[in-house]
Write a protein that binds this DNA or RNA. Structure first.
Lengths: 203, 203, 203, 203
DNA sequence: GATGAATGAGACTTCATTCAT
DNA sequence: AATGAATGAAGTCTCATTCAT
């Protein structure tokens, strides 16, 4: 486990009640945006009184932070766990893009909060999250570089390709599900093909 | 001009003051999100009193709508104007992706509002905007189809490719400018190359 | 002891824990005022949980009442115990003013609660306390009257003098300790001199 | 006028509405204490909506500060205006104590706020107020010193006498009006006599 | 006896909007 | 058109108190 439980514990909510509140908040934040969500709505969606959130999260922002931290850990864990670093780059890119895209589709509500509500974090919390995001990007960049070095990939611009792959994944959380795509695995499969083409994969 | 002046006029704000308010609102909406922005902030950023917005826009939502409508018209106009429908598909895709991506980079504040604040529109306004968005997507779909028919492109899945190209453009407004990319034309150029690869362009 | 133990017992808190809570409450009430003090603060200052006060005091007001009652009994006891009713008035005034002033200085936190938070008592509790206060005032009035009758004192207005002496004592709890005076006995000594002059003591 | 209007203006409320709010707040603060008073009560006592206070005072504390500042200026002005610095000390003490005591009786609600709610001010505001209070005390100290130097007064301890005189005045706001005393001028007259005795006035 | 989550009420404050000026 | 006080509703958060554990 990349993110040790202990790091997320304490004020971030380990109790069952805290987890339920987080889950409820994810749905509402995703639907209306953090700024337009009231703590009352979150409580009401669990049939709780308005103040019941506060024994678990001292502020609305700390709730967002807990969600954001958990979410970012989850994505990073997902792609790191899927990456077989001793396989050829093509396999690695396939595995990680699949994991990344499928995660954003499957957890689209959480993903939306994770990807689009960062600006509402406090400066301190934002800094911690920003570090996690850099770690995530780096995974793709490293794989493309490895593929290019091995002659498996022929990217025109490694950085642009890595950015585009990330963008594709992030943006899934904005529109998923759509009329055309409502199966996370299908989206992942299509996007893997596009990713391989973007990096100029030989296969 | 695709959108006739008259359609945008009236309550949508043709006066100079209305335009200034729109411009100010774009910046604040982009920075904090519609839900977290107060009408007071918009007024204050123009050194106006809280009530000064209301002679021009009856509600905060109508201000968002005016911005959204103007923005969506602008993107659609930008790609339509750049599209030479009698050229080969490769040239067309190059021209339209360039226009689309560069527009999102150059107008990143407006683009962010346009792309991420839709959910705050009234149902009626949302419907009107949704039509414009479909028109925009269709431009890319048609070009890819034309390229495939002509044998210039070899997409694995036309719809997925069109979606991905749109996603790439939309997502530019989320991160632009970054340390690596702060020139709209450079981003556009890189993304055109990626788009051509995604559609399996022969060239 | 004027107040029989039994009258103060029961709901007023005889246990050690109740006494600790009262002591903690006195400090916080004195520092911030009853209205601005939360029961949580009192509990927290003893490292107890928010609910821990309630097994001992059913309401915040009953805690104030217990403190107020104990405090008023204490002052009354202090001056009564110091008063030698068979001595000359000068000695009696000296003894009682010393006791009164020193008590307010020494117990300035409790005194502040006792003197300034009466309005937050329930009507019933206020009535009980008001009786105690009248008994206290009467001590000074009686002494001055006795002194005047004996020709030891020459007050211009007995009631005003008694009131002023009380005021001086009460007000000590507002400012004590100050830069100039931080020894209760010194304050008491000075104020006795002033009191004797106010009543026109011959000596 | 010692306190120039301009110094109190601006955020402190010069408008008629601000003055009405201040007047209403004084009554409620005096009756229940600042900590126990709600901004709603203040607004309600003027038949205003809860939010109507806020265009005039940004916070409850700033309202307290405005009241406190105005009140402290008023006391200081009252005693300074009554002091004829070229008269003998006896006359000066008579005039200033009269002014001080009568002010506390006549404005007992304001005086109570001024004297007993200081602890609720912000540190910055408290500092400003504390300066004003020192200026007030100094008036009495100087007069007693002058009287002592001229041989008019024979105080045992100048500082204690000045402190006691201040205490007497302050404490008036706690109990005034009482059954015995409800005329400010009568209280003032009695207290002047006591003050003169306390300083050992020859007359 | 103590804990701490939960409640119901309510606190301070803000907000979109209105309206007299 | 603009101002700014005012409103009514609501927002975040706190609080005295309760209660299951």
């Amino acid at each position: 486990m990349t993110a040790p439980r202990s790091a997320v514990a304490g004020e971030l909510g380990t109790s069952k009640a805290a987890a339920r509140i987080r889950a409820a908040a994810i749905e509402v934040f995703a639907a209306k945006g953090y700024g337009a969500t009231t703590t009352r709505e979150i409580a009401a969606s669990l049939d709780l009184s308005p103040g019941a959130v506060y024994p678990h999260y001292k502020t609305k922002e700390s709730l967002l932070y807990a969600i954001s931290l958990e979410g970012h850990h989850a994505v990073l864990t997902a792609i790191r766990n899927s990456d077989r670093t001793d396989s050829p780059a093509g396999k690695r890119l396939t595995a990680t893009v699949t994991a990344y895209v499928a995660w954003h589709a499957r957890n689209h509500a959480l993903a939306r909060v994770v990807q689009y509500e960062l600006r509402s974090l406090s400066d301190e919390h934002f800094g911690i999250i920003a570090d996690l995001r850099r770690s995530t990007s780096k995974v793709f960049t490293r794989i493309i570089e490895a593929g290019a070095a091995a002659g498996d990939f022929h990217p025109i611009d490694t950085e642009a390709a890595a950015l585009a792959i990330t963008s594709l994944g992030v943006d899934v959380s904005r529109w998923f599900p759509s009329n055309a795509y409502s199966d996370p695995d299908v989206v992942a499969e299509r996007y893997v093909e596009l990713a391989l083409r973007m990096v100029g994969s030989a296969s």
